[in-house]
Design a protein around this nucleic acid. Structure first.
Lengths: 340, 340
DNA sequence: TTGAAAGCGTTACCAC
DNA sequence: GTGGTAACGCTTTCAA
């Protein structure tokens, strides 16, 4: 028989109201009584009942903010679906979610959105942060006022966020290298396509790849690196030229968005060149199915959205902190036969 | 503002009790009133509130049975963890779960267990069925009395189960073939290791593989098929001999449990032979990490357990049927770099 | 055939 | 500082 607040009240010789105030540190309880109550709760392993809580929380429901620079990026569609799914599962609690989607990487936009959240009594924020010290500062300042943060898809260091939910980019890079070894057993000559050399995730995918290659003592030559700002046309033109310059290239490793451009350049070649990339936007799915991309490594965007909201909710509403600061989603290998 | 049973009662000019009886077909309501109530509920899109329901259901909690011939099979450890996780998530409802684990494939054991469940007022059963017509009959008979069934990991045809939760064995076979094409680009000469030629899942893995090879017009020769009854020693001895007989074998495809034996035989060879297998028991994980298994295809046992209980719960307690009769878990490719 | 009321566990508010 | 009570939405029981 689970412990209820009523039972604790009885044992402590007080009322349920007092127990509630004591356990939530809401003040107005004599310190000695508060301690006694907490001890009893501890000893009996009291866990507040979720159903009862949901029912009573209805009067002032929790409110979260979600902040992502996701506009115009198809990848984030699934992340948003995950967020919606979590909200639906938490419908009992009438969780409100304020969505703010921005375009591009301007720190100013995020700062303004965070301030707006603070005005609106937002208890927790899921954020895909721009890597800027002002954002870190703002997160820390708001944390001081009790607002809780979870970073999703992209992390930011030096902050008091509760957790990061997303891909382990370094490990996905390693996994790509493992695939490379399988499909190009001999000497690998590599063309890398990255979105930006300032994008942390992209860099880690490259770093993980080369680390794995080194650890496995594989002979590898990086013919060139293309920076395409996630743009298809740029990737196409640059790849076309590089593939001509380096006829020995047998592997194209795309860590950025906008893979299709580079793939087009590859498929215009006569020789067999393997392509490895990341994520599974509809365009990529179609290219994998056609065999123009050998494999893609996915990071479970749906789960990223779902999980980040759940983790935040557990912390804000139930006072339960995540098991780890780093909540990595699976690193999934998809080839034409298992991509859908 | 969500619709409550109270609001429906008001609109229908009856009490909440009557609404409840009407919507649950519990009888004792004048047909015309019942229809009116149902219409209103339908029109307003009434969905019973889970928290309220959880709270009131406490007095007589639902009881489920789980029936698997899983004793002594390490694969099912994760399935059971998934079941436990679902039970924990449904703690609000005080869901009881009766676990019955058996060893081997005796239909009699399962029949007896099912009868016992029926005695104990079990509302729903998660079952990994033995493929025997008597089991199918029993499932159908008990379905007639209102008991609900979900099959997990292994399906059984011709039954009134609500859904199957598990691997799409055929597609995993196709995926294995896709991998085979990547790692053995030329002519493939194959040694197959299966648990039993009577095991439906194993057969489908083989069938999917050869179908995919055919569809992709790949040149392939099956040197031999070993039947090892999921036993390591048997697999070792047989594989050792077959590898000697057929020096052209460059791929070993293991669709059964007890992969380690065959792997041992492979690693005693001088030449490079790729090994593809299924699932990720601790032993397999270790062999993949050592590079003795090229890749393994996993079927998310945890999720199989979790999902089967959730689906059953939704049906029995909330009256919500699963979206599809076939709820396939992801087919995951694991290589040394992403296996954990 | 129907209604009224109690109860599930929590929180919030108002008295004292 | 503390206790009592109402409220959340549903199911169930007892009366009528």
């Amino acid at each position: 028989m689970p412990v209820t607040s009523g039972k604790i009240a009885e044992l402590a010789g007080v009322s349920r109201g007092t127990v509630d105030r004591a356990l939530h540190n809401r003040g107005g309880v004599k310190p000695e009584v508060e301690n006694r109550i907490k001890e009893i709760a501890q000893k009996l392993g009291y866990e507040p009942d979720r159903a009862g809580k949901a029912l009573s929380t209805r009067k002032n429901p929790p409110r979260f903010g979600v902040l992502m620079n996701s506009l115009g990026n198809p990848f984030f569609h699934e992340v948003k679906e995950g967020i919606a799914a979590a909200q639906k599962e938490l419908a009992d609690f009438r969780l409100e979610i304020l969505m703010r989607e921005t375009k591009g990487y301007r720190a100013e936009d995020q700062l303004a959105a965070l301030d707006a959240f603070a005005q609106q009594d937002v208890k927790g924020v899921v954020i895909m942060p721009v890597d800027d010290p002002r954002i870190a500062e703002k997160i820390n300042a708001l944390s001081g006022t009790g607002m809780r943060f979870v970073t999703v898809n992209t992390d930011i260091s030096q902050t008091r966020r509760l957790a990061y939910v997303g891909s382990d980019y370094f490990q996905s890079g390693r996994t790509a290298a493992g695939l490379a070894e399988l499909v190009v057993p001999g000497r690998a000559e590599l063309l890398i396509v990255t979105g930006s050399i300032k994008n942390l995730g992209h860099n880690q995918r490259i770093y993980g790849f080369s680390r794995e290659m080194k650890d496995r003592m594989r002979e590898i030559r990086v013919a060139d690196i293309i920076e395409n700002n996630d743009d298809e046309e740029t990737a196409y033109i640059a790849a076309k030229q590089k593939l001509k310059e380096h006829p020995g290239i047998n592997l194209v490793y795309i860590v950025s968005g906008g893979a299709a451009g580079a793939v087009k350049a590859v498929s215009e070649q006569k020789r067999k060149i393997h392509v490895l990339c990341f994520d599974s936007t509809p365009q990529i799915v179609s290219l994998v199915k056609k065999g123009e991309i050998t494999a893609t490594i996915c990071q479970k965007p749906f789960e990223q959205g779902y999980r980040s909201v759940r983790v935040l909710f557990d912390a804000v509403v139930n006072g339960v902190l995540p098991e780890s600061e780093f909540l990595y989603t699976d690193c999934q290998i998809k080839i034409r036969q298992n991509i859908e």
